[in-house]
Design a protein around this nucleic acid. Sequence first.
DNA 1: CAGCTCATGTGAGACTGTCTTACATCACGG
DNA 2: CCGTGATGTAAGACAGTCTCACATGAGCTG
Lengths: 222, 222
Amino acid sequence: MSWSGHQGHAGRRGYHHGNLREALVEAALALIAEKGPAGFTIAEAARLAGVSPAAPYRHFRDAEALLAEVAQRGFELLESALAAAWHDGRPEPVAAFEALGRAYLGFARSEPAHYAAMFETRLAADAWPPLAAAADRAFGVLRGAAERLAEVLPKEQRPPALMIALHVWALSHGIATLFCRPDRGRRPLPMPPEELLEAGVLLYLQSLGLAGGTPRGHKSPP
Amino acid sequence: MSWSGHQGHAGRRGYHHGNLREALVEAALALIAEKGPAGFTIAEAARLAGVSPAAPYRHFRDAEALLAEVAQRGFELLESALAAAWHDGRPEPVAAFEALGRAYLGFARSEPAHYAAMFETRLAADAWPPLAAAADRAFGVLRGAAERLAEVLPKEQRPPALMIALHVWALSHGIATLFCRPDRGRRPLPMPPEELLEAGVLLYLQSLGLAGGTPRGHKSPP
DNA sequence: CAGCTCATGTGAGACTGTCTTACATCACGG
DNA sequence: CCGTGATGTAAGACAGTCTCACATGAGCTG
């Protein structure tokens, strides 16, 4: 017999692959991790999955659709990672907020293929509504955390939480893209990216009166 | 005659193009602006320049080399723009520093093709030394400005200027990539990107004691 | 269990792009 | 006036995208 039955383990079960869609997403991740989003091709993903070059088109309209799927899953993973780190502000909001920042960089570092699909691919937001929704949910974690942080101040002198979230997101994303790359960003840093981010966020929050510490009395490393 | 002499205006002067290298860079910029770095192809750049698909390879080893050239010119333009905005800290360092930030966003907005070639192409720094050098010079403007800013503080409580420069660069780059895109980043902002950056930098500098204003007594917009 | 039907995969192919090789043209200098 | 090197062309090998007609077989229905 040319096919081998219904065993459940990975691999083809004859003419049909069995789980080609998942296999293609995995292959795309591997290729993006290795060569960047531009180096990924449908043909090579099909080769990795062991099917003909035309097979992927049964599951994805074109290469962009596959990238969008990867990006969407990336935002869902990021949302989980951020929510776990924030942990609803426990045990202490400022510490949890710093953990959230570290989680962002950790995600960029540990999931470079997802991160690249999310931010280096020019996917039009309105062409992929589920992707945009997933991105919004991930940002929502950060926004919610900023709102909670701001609540320690009396309402009339409370800074807009959305602004805080945007500032912290931009700083985190900037550090991630500029300094958390295996290939690029080989600029020698005086400190690891996580510490750079933590210091920046802390200084920013101090200025808003949201974090303790003396705004001017920092230690100056040699 | 099939060729038309030595007139200096643009266009071919017979068999030889006359200025193909420049024409290819221009074509690349136009294509990147229209379709992103991934949409740019050597073949179409050649078509725009009016030469055969093989001609560009006389001037650039491959597509990546042409992109590297565009990116390098981008960093040189950015350096000029930043230096002009900083204006050696005149008339007043903090105001000049804010102008520098606005210039960064202005560059990202007015030169999207250059910006994309600089930051969306995964060019390996060590494969293109002149590119890396140009990037260093551009960052050097920011670093020099941060050093000058820090000098207002007594030496023992002076924060490391490199850290300041890295923070501000990351924040600027994050805002530029997330919110200054024609296509992506259609997230509705409560304020224009320039104001977002200015507010972030100001708060950050206040915390370091480098900008005036009361660190806590800000106005909170509704 | 027979047979239908549809999701899924294949093979072939048109089209486009990359990059190489051999050749053509022309500018420039002796 | 001719040689030489820089620059462009023509042709082509190779790879990738995507489509279309066709093949397969999984699962449903009777």
